[in-house]
Design a protein around this nucleic acid. Structure first.
Lengths: 344, 344
DNA sequence: CTGAAAGCGCTTACAG
DNA sequence: CTGAAAGCGCTTACAG
């Protein structure tokens, strides 16, 4: 437990210069096999660990990628982090997590961007919403960025076709004969503002429109992206005269809606069909029809995109649109009429 | 977008030395109000942002706290991160996330500890299991540590009384008249090894023992901490002749167990009572009786404990045991016999 | 209260 | 292939 070895100690022990130690340890070329061997042995013997701050200062690189998410404790963003982390761990890069929840935090994030760009080499920004001007400023800056869930056209992005996915979901309900279809979304009226929410709402309206229907104001509610948010929105809907089907823009919300239905004595799917969004594991367990999206894969791809930029890739902006899949389950299945999950 | 200002630029613009700029900007004493004012203005005008790597190298502090968790994409650990992050954000500290999943990753974590201690000022270790010798080595090291979910006696810790919590859960089932009670746990036979799992198993056995019952081998199964893990374990239990009640050591597992029961045509709670652990929001929605534990609060407290150590607190090791609460819901409620959540 | 100077521990041209 | 030296941008005694 003596004082930690520094590069100089390794150098003198190996009988070479610190420059050579630096090269040898990082696997750079122009080091003879014999010298490299000597250096590695010396480093090993001294249990040498380079000081990352010194290395970062000298090299001008931080070995770190930042990931910004609106919240940490949701299934979606937890999987985003997991996807990014897995990729970074492979490359021995650090992950710097930034929580940007709401307008104030966005202000702070923006104000801190110049400082941030000194401590990360790249950035994965997830569901972050800023004025166009700021995106352009960012694009003018030095750090490569990939966005997930939002496509600015300025950066590599990984998204899904939210409009199409919502159309499929609502189309499914229409195919089943529903005409009074509610939407539990998010946005200005709900809690978190969110581009995906807006697009899924658009898809809902498009699907209805194709059948000559509209989305009446009393069936168009918004809540927070949570079980409680979905429950409250559904109770609101029920208070206004329940629809026969509801499309919720997240699984948590859908599960909250199912809960509210139960409280109101409505059976799912007989009295109320429910569709969610995400397909988290719990969705399958409770028989929730939902739109599957490959969350951690999307995040991993975003991470790879910024790594490629760090490796010098200067090709055109890549805008990846990942596939989604409507998973049909019991929450919309009229043929299956025996009670399931009767945990009452 | 000219080259970023450095401290020297601020110094010359303010007409003072860099030492004074450094002091003024960090709010240190021994700077006259007038000088501080000048410096702040100059920094503002130049949009100066200190280079964190330089500051960390010079100061020997990293401004970062590391958090190690076994996985990222579970409700429990997502809330751990959220709890820690909230505390660190207040103090303007960075969070360094480390995923330590399984034995290999633990090896790597241990091997990387000397390097890690250079890049974090403190560490929150969550559900990490290492040989005693390594804990002692860690305790001899320079970085303050707080553990959550495990109590080594060597570091500040935040835990719950897992044994008592499990006893309460199983005691509840016993009070309801159940005698054939299964346990869905984790451990050597299941996937993730976990001290909490072992303690909850012990509590289960204690509760049964108090009534003169034991835990027969065929009712003692283990799975991974997931919906799928719970489902598989329950199917196994059903194959062996289902118990009338089951205690699952996580909510995800309990929801998986309910799913399996449904698949097998068993009603919850009439044919099978189910108790979970955690009380995540979905648990309430599906009417799951479960043990509530204050996850993000525990994590936040752990973060505060390491921050206090960083502030020089050298008092005795603090071992916090947080309260838990058995939330009784429909999944164990025999009186409530109308089907709920009949999303079939 | 303020400044000159050393030092933090690396990396990187530049020579050789 | 290897080394001497400058430099990365701060902080911190030490003087004054």
């Amino acid at each position: 437990m003596s004082r930690a070895a520094k590069i100089e100690d390794v150098a003198s022990r190996a009988g070479v210069s610190v420059a050579t130690v630096s090269r040898a340890l990082r696997g750079l070329p122009h080091v003879s096999a014999a010298t490299r061997e000597k250096v590695l042995r010396a480093a090993e013997e001294l249990d040498y660990r380079p000081n990352p701050h010194a290395a970062r200062l000298a090299a001008g690189r931080s070995g770190t990628v930042g990931v910004a998410v609106p919240v940490l404790n949701s299934w979606f963003y937890a999987n985003v982090l997991a996807g990014v982390e897995a990729v970074l761990a492979e490359e021995a890069l650090d992950m710097h997590v930034i929580v940007v929840d709401g307008p104030d935090a966005t202000e702070r994030f923006i104000a801190g961007l110049p400082a941030l760009s000194k401590r990360v080499d790249g950035l994965v920004l997830c569901d972050l919403f800023m004025p166009d001007q700021l995106w352009e400023d960012l694009a003018g800056g030095p750090v490569p960025v990939a966005t997930v869930g939002v496509d600015t056209g300025l950066f590599d992005s990984v998204t899904i076709d939210n409009v199409a996915a919502a159309e499929a979901a609502v189309g499914h309900l229409l195919d089943l004969g529903h005409t009074r279809i509610g939407l539990i979304g998010a946005g200005p009226d709900g809690a978190t503002d969110n581009e995906s929410a807006a697009l899924r709402r658009r898809g809902t309206i498009a699907a209805l429109g194709r059948r000559g229907l509209d989305l009446p104001a009393d069936l168009d509610v918004a809540g927070s992206f949570s079980v409680a948010g979905g429950r409250e929105a559904m109770l609101e809907l029920i208070g206004r005269g329940a629809p026969t089907a509801v499309f919720c823009i997240s699984d948590e919300m859908a599960i909250g809606a199912m809960w509210a239905a139960e409280e109101a004595g409505l059976r799912v799917p007989e009295d109320l069909a429910v569709v969610g969004f995400d397909d988290q594991p719990v969705a399958e367990a409770v028989g929730l029809t939902t739109v599957r999206q490959p969350v951690s894969i999307m995040a991993a791809r975003a991470a790879h995109l910024v790594l490629a930029r760090l490796d010098g890739d200067d090709g055109p902006v890549q805008r990846h649109v990942m596939p989604t899949l409507l998973q049909k389950r019991k929450s919309t299945d009229f043929r299956h009429l025996t009670p399931v999950h009767a945990h009452s």
